[in-house]
Amino acid sequence: MKQIDDLLKKYFEGKTTLQEENFLKSYFRHEKVLPEHEIYKSLFQVFDEKANEKMAEKVSEKKVLPKVKRFWKQTVAISGIAAALLVIFWLKPIEKNEDFVIVNGKKIENTQFAQNYALEKLNNVSNTLENNLKPLGAITTVKSSMEPVKKIPQIKKRLEKIEETITLNN
């Protein structure tokens, strides 16, 4: 057992090799060691215990790569969906005609019908204006016919008074 004593001496001086230290560890793992070596048994036993110690709660990928990986996964997914939608709308514009008019409270989406309806209504407005302006034409005729009469001073004076009165009333 001189070999063990020599190795222990070297060990406590910090001069043993890993191989020699493994030999000492193996020796102290035995149930029976020499009484003079018993003192060191607990020391090597502790080293063995510590070497077999494991972290009770294992580190999982989800815990290690917390925000970083999941954040990028979500970002990539959302960006992908957004990009896909953008491409779809860009390549294929909405064909649906969103022009419409409201006629008598009803939504009319038929463009041709709406145009015809608008044209008809505009014609009605035009006819109404034309009919209503016809009396104005008669007034002009009367006015021009009255020009020779205005040469008579008394009548001219009267007419001017009448026009003045009309202007004031308006």
């Binding site: 510590k50 070497a51 110690e53 972290m55 009770a56 709660e57 294992k58 580190v59």
Partner: peptide, 26 residues
């Protein structure tokens, strides 16, 4: 990740505290 146990033992030997060693590994 396979270094987890070795890192845990190392941390525990320095901080002498199981919970602190686990936190350090994480």
């Amino acid at each position: 990740l396979p270094l987890t146990d070795q890192l845990f033992r190392m941390a525990k030997s320095i901080v002498c505290n199981d919970e602190a060693a686990k936190d350090a590994v994480q």
